[in-house]
């Protein structure tokens, strides 16, 4: 059997994402409506910060510009994650319903199929909102574009990795779809509030098991004060989360019993 190379796998992932996105765009009207509504949804939610910061000006050092940048990075990260790996939200359900059967015999890594089979139209709305908000924050100049790209990609990688780790719990715990989706949402929820609000054990949690810090705070810090050290640190952390997620999924797959399902994968 031919061994899949890293380059081949990356090329395959890109093709899978393109196909999933094309599938989502097949119904253009619905696609645009969903993307537009998600953008509107983000804009309405952000009015909370506009109204609050109009009254109190800063929350533990975070002003409106900082919040705009933080929210923009998280929205762009979530958007990118949902475009490239939209299947992550359904991972636990796919495992518990035995839907992995159809992709187990495919030549490329199983996890890639599961993640890349779906692409959320809402992801495009999130990504668009994120880019607009980052631009509005005024924190980005020509020189900060490379760290910005790294920040968004790292945020997306950590989001997908945490989703894979939570979703993989279904291999051992069975029907945990609702709970894992809630955990996944928690990562995003904590990421859109100012970092100094959280202290003690919760702070440790946000830098480890519920890695909101690497979805929002640290990428935003990289864009505001870019340094090579911080960039390398964020890159390494995102890579570690991706590797751990892949390992956890692989371990879970060994205990997977299957659902005796037959399905065509194209």
């Amino acid at each position: 059997m031919e061994r899949s190379t890293v380059r081949g796998t990356l090329r395959f992932s890109a093709a899978l994402a393109r196909t999933a996105l094309a599938g989502a765009m097949a119904h253009r009207g619905t696609f645009l409506l969903q993307a537009g509504l998600m953008a509107l949804n983000n804009a309405i939610f952000f009015t909370f910060w506009i109204v609050l910061l109009h009254r109190v000006h800063t929350v533990r050092g975070y002003g409106l510009r900082d919040m705009t940048l933080l929210y923009g990075i998280v929205a762009a990260g979530v958007g990118l994650a949902m475009i490239v790996a939209g299947g992550v939200r359904q991972l636990a359900r796919v495992v518990q319903d035995g839907e992995l059967d159809a992709v187990l015999a495919q030549p490329k890594p199983t996890l890639l199929y599961v993640l890349g089979r779906r692409s959320g139209a809402s992801g495009v709305g999130d990504l668009a909102t994120g880019i607009v908000m980052i631009a509005l924050s005024g924190a980005v100049h020509a020189s900060t574009v490379p760290p910005l790209v790294l920040a968004i990609v790292a945020s997306a990688v950590v989001i997908v990795s945490s989703g894979v780790m939570f979703g993989s719990l279904a291999f051992w715990l069975g029907p945990v779809d609702a709970a894992t989706r809630q955990l996944f949402e928690l990562v995003i929820t904590f990421a859109i509030y100012p970092e100094p609000l959280f202290g003690g054990a919760l702070r440790v949690l946000l830098f480890t098991l519920v890695p909101s810090a690497f979805v929002g705070y640290v990428p935003a810090r990289l864009v505001q004060s870019p340094t090579v050290g911080l960039g390398l640190e964020l890159f390494a952390i995102a890579a570690i989360y991706a590797m751990v997620a892949s390992w956890v999924f692989g371990r879970g797959l060994r205990s997977y019993c299957g659902g005796s399902r037959f399905e065509l994968v194209g």
């Binding site: 969903q34 509504l37 949804n41 309405i44 939610f45 909370f48 809402s122």
Partner: peptide, 14 residues
């Protein structure tokens, strides 16, 4: 109906 619900939800927020 998810997109319609999101809008309803966010209008509830504000």
């Amino acid at each position: 109906i998810a997109p319609v619900y999101w809008i309803w939800q966010k209008l509830t927020f504000v």
